[in-house]
Design a binder for these strands. Sequence first.
DNA 1: AGGCTTAGTGTCAAACGAACACTTAAAAAA
DNA 2: TTTTTTAAGTGTTCGTTTGACACTAAGCCT
Lengths: 256, 256
Amino acid sequence: MSISPSLNPHVSVDCVIFGFSKETLRLLLIKRTVPNALTELDDSYYALPGDLVRDNENLDEAAARVLKELTGLTGIFLQQFQAFGDPLRITKAKDRAWLQGVRQDPDARVITVAYMALIESSKVEIQPGSFSKGAVWLPIGEIPELAFDHNEISEGALMALREKVQIQPIAFELLPEKFTMSDLQALYETILQRDLDKRNFRRKMLNSGVIAALPEKQHGVSNKPARYYVFNRNLFENSPLGFVNLKMEGSFTLFN
Amino acid sequence: MSISPSLNPHVSVDCVIFGFSKETLRLLLIKRTVPNALTELDDSYYALPGDLVRDNENLDEAAARVLKELTGLTGIFLQQFQAFGDPLRITKAKDRAWLQGVRQDPDARVITVAYMALIESSKVEIQPGSFSKGAVWLPIGEIPELAFDHNEISEGALMALREKVQIQPIAFELLPEKFTMSDLQALYETILQRDLDKRNFRRKMLNSGVIAALPEKQHGVSNKPARYYVFNRNLFENSPLGFVNLKMEGSFTLFN
DNA sequence: AGGCTTAGTGTCAAACGAACACTTAAAAAA
DNA sequence: TTTTTTAAGTGTTCGTTTGACACTAAGCCT
């Protein structure tokens, strides 16, 4: 049986990892260094964490592995959102140089399945390992030119996030266990890039039943202390495939 | 440079092609025949049309090619919805037998990127060619066991369609140019598997501005003739990436 | 005590969603 | 020619949701 490897693309997964800190939405990116400085160009640049899919794992597993290798975290919100497979994805000189050192077959194309992850960024402890060099959280407004088509993938992830957040209560994945109503509103405002009315926002969130008030309040703040809330996880965990039926009262259109 | 083909999966696209006729939603499936009757099993079975992605084409192009090879149609609504890549996808004996005749490397796994297409089924003329043997429109309620994980893929497509149809005005892709309000309502009811109120449905559709009334009515029907409508395409064609901003008046939540 | 900062609260008007039954137009049957 | 059959078409009411809008409360700081 003859083998013609050029027909078989490499398949990778890439993770667009969202975090939220200092009132901004951020992506966790890794720094790549071109192994042999064949080029006159700058020899390092940012990329999405990703890896080839291994023989014995499915796509979700591969994405979870990448996420864990970088952050040490498991059980994180991680969802496939799109596959990218343009044969011209890899055109930049830096990309080609880097691939020289990594791929078995330098002429095969790479098809990548992109995932988005939502994590509470303070939980992340960058793990020592292949990704670890210079992993950084960059605000989504300040993403530089990335490897391959990773800019396009990041944009796609952001658009997917904006849509999802209005349908499913997933924004909570980006916040710590307890949070204030203002934290939550700031998060939604950042994701949606739009101001929301405080009173209407509170009303909707409370009516929807997705959050529950704690007795506890802030301490030591120099203003009226805010109440803490928690996400009402048990409401949603038993839906099929992690998908959430949002015909709860007070749906999730948060538009003003 | 050494080549280890077992690491490189095959990448294919599969098309879940939806049509609507006789008041039912249907899938266009092809019949596969196991080339050499090595097995004692039934030697033909249904599958989604699909093919390996070629060297020089991107994923969307591959899907469009498959669609065209089978139906002769281009310019059809065709949207990626999920990649499937479980290494255990291919376990059935029939599947393995069939693959013997097709793949270069029978041990490599197959990762597939699934697309859904919406077409007016009367436009389809099955093209002579590799897919042509016994292509059929089967009602979604009567889909038999399919090749590989194609049942799972079809289910996923149906769920994706149900969600999309409530957000974007895409159901029209399944109807002929002119249609009656009852046609449209029957289509939505079939897709959503729920009854809709006639008066509320009409009001919402008309207020939304996505359809326009024609002067013309039905002829030769043995009851009050229904008015014809057309989909208001120009409203939506100039939105980025084919994505539709539905903050038009009367949004698209068609729930009862 | 006064000032600063952020949390927290209520009302009204407009739009929307859901429920609901009768009349009309055409062909077919009597 | 009248009557029957069939599906099309049409408005109103009520409860809920949305969006706009401004002041008071609580704690720290000086």
